[in-house]
Amino acid sequence: MDKLLSVEMLNVVYGKGKDSVHAVKDVTFYIKPGEIFGLVGESGCGKSSLGKAVIRLTDPTSGTIDFNGTDVASLKGKALKTYRQEVQMVFQDPYGSLNPRMKVGSAIVDVLQVHKIGNNTMERRARVTELFEAVGLEPDWAWRYPHEFSGGQRQRICIARALALNPDLLVADEPVSALDVSVQAEILQLLEKLRASRQLAFLFVSHDLAVVRNVCDRVAVMYNGEIVEMGNVADVIDNPQHEYTRKLLEAVPSF
């Protein structure tokens, strides 16, 4: 079995009846261990909904999400909590994703405590130090409040928090699009480094084709809730088959 995550015929529908929105339609794809899988498309195409369904922030309406041999699409309670240790998420907005009234290190200690990792606060604090070093931050900074950090630093903190549970898959929902270009490159390098050192796989959701071309191994193009094209990143971007992919590429000046 060479697949870490395998999604089949996944549907996400918001609402009921006439007002319902079919955000994700019959989507099928897989991610291998240690692979960076890109998901591109314009805003509103359902790529974020798909990411949220994979991490189970949104309940899928139908279909299966197979993770390491278990169907996680309908997990609840304790089993869902265990799944949280395998798959984590980094959000687009580094300003909103940290609790403003909590020291960033305390937020991570809190997560470790909930998952009973480490025996006491001392051990958990030591783990926070390790995590901060792993994402390239000064360990002393862990005991500060979020408003004292820049956007790039905050995104590093978010990544450290996501790594606290030692996941195998990280859903990165536009992780760099809120950052300055120079900072974007640093964060992308960090993600590459983590992939290499921890065999971490990524579901990399983005609208930025240049970024996707740089970091992803394989890519899926989403349009109107459906995957219209999927393949190795070089094939898809250099030799697009689907009309929508061509349009998407034409819209980017550098391609």
Binding site: R84, M89, L98, N99, D110, V111, V114, L165
Partner: peptide, 20 residues
């Protein structure tokens, strides 16, 4: 997002409500 992140991290409802 910080509440969404807390949910994704597996924190319970009570903890999210009263501690976060």
């Amino acid at each position: 997002t910080y509440v969404q992140a807390a949910k994704a991290l597996g924190l319970g409802s009570g903890r999210i409500m009263f501690k976060h």
